[in-house]
Design a protein around this nucleic acid. Structure first.
Lengths: 217, 217
DNA sequence: TATTATTTTTAGATTTGTCTAAACATATAG
DNA sequence: CTATATGTTTAGACAAATCTAAAAATAATA
């Protein structure tokens, strides 16, 4: 069993591995953990001793199979709790991330399995992220980021890759929520902002925002 | 905001204060916390610095108003989560204590209020303990301990004052669960064990067990 | 390739909660 | 009202997770 902090490191290394190929650098972890590189080096050594990550000095880290499976389990719990908070307790999708950050560390396999059952074995969380099953399996549908679409292409909003309350409230205001159908009407050459139509409404989305919106074409 | 450990100390001091009059002794806390008296002294000083307890060397501790209110809030969360686990996730009443020990430390007032609402504002938990409302108010119905009843008295099983899995499984086996009507048929002079009838079945309960069963006469 | 610049690691200190062993205070008994 | 037993506190140490500052390794650049 890992400590609260060890679990957070594993989770962050896992997420970084999803978006980057190769070993994960100390500084990248430090930034996500909001801590200093020296602290990361200390923790990295500890996780390597426990065979949860592969580590060679100055070469960054990768998860071992057992580290990956521990990380996926945390992600599973996080996403199941988010579903609970939104579906059962009526939280908004922009309010659940921080609470789930705490709930994900509750240790009880039986709790997770019963929660999963209670929620009807959901396949994705309120932000469109897939929920691993009890064996850590889940399918990654290869979504396209909104900023990669061309003019006149259309698709469905399937997820977001940024979970901050500010970002999600912004999408809410724009009407860009999960399941919505969109059509690209124009792309601004100068700043990369995207003009599109959602529910008969013409809106504009900055490139920075578009990067975090996942579309099924 | 208190740390995980500080919260556990407050909770234990609160529970001890319910069953004992006057100040709570260092050793009593040490026993419940499964730690050493020296560690308790250290923590006591810290809680006193934060004005959560009143402390005079060698004289034991009492909760201050803010310490008591913090403790009651933890108890509230613990009991609400127990209701959730039993009513919604189908846990047995003997399986929920340890999981609720973790869940009670999740920090979010909004979560607690929404959970309370989701559960329909329950007044008591699966062991018959009263659930404080959001202002810390709750009524303590003065139950009688089973070992204090006389032969031929009857009553209803309303709660238990011991939450270990072993104890609760034992009651389950005897059919002595919440709401059951009982009649005392005999009290053994020698060992204080109690003979009684539940649901037409004649059973015997040791004095030690009887002490932890709360009856409404 | 030699020289910066960047990144990572080490060394040593700090904080939180714990411990053991010894000192001190209070309670109990003769 | 001493002597002993019990309970509590202090002193000093330790492990976990963090930090700053300095050293070492790697990468980038002239």
């Amino acid at each position: 069993m890992q400590s609260f902090t060890e679990e957070n490191y594993l989770k962050i290394i896992y997420h970084l591995s999803q978006n980057n190929i190769g070993a994960i650098q100390t500084n990248a972890i430090a930034e996500k953990m909001q801590t200093k590189a020296a602290s990361v080096t200390d923790m990295i050594k500890k996780l390597a001793d426990k065979k949860l990550i592969n580590y060679k000095k100055y070469q960054g880290v990768t998860l071992t199979p057992s580290g990956k499976s521990a990380a996926i389990n945390i992600v599973r719990k996080h996403r199941l709790w988010e579903v609970f908070l939104v579906e059962k307790l009526n939280f908004k999708w922009d309010q659940v991330h921080d609470i789930a950050e705490d709930l994900e560390h509750i240790q009880s396999n039986e709790l997770v399995e019963k929660l999963d059952e209670f929620l009807g074995f959901p396949k994705s969380d309120p932000h469109g992220d897939p929920i691993p099953d009890k064996n850590g399996q889940f399918d990654t549908i290869p979504f396209t980021k909104l900023n990669k679409l061309q003019t006149s292409e259309h698709g469905l909003v399937m997820g977001v890759s940024e979970h901050s309350s500010n970002f999600l409230k912004h999408l809410e205001k724009l009407g860009l929520t999960l399941g919505k159908r969109i059509v690209i009407t124009d792309i601004n050459d100068f700043d990369g902002s995207v003009e599109l139509i959602v529910e008969q409404k013409k809106i504009s989305v900055s490139r920075e925002v578009a990067k975090h919106i996942l579309i099924k074409v």
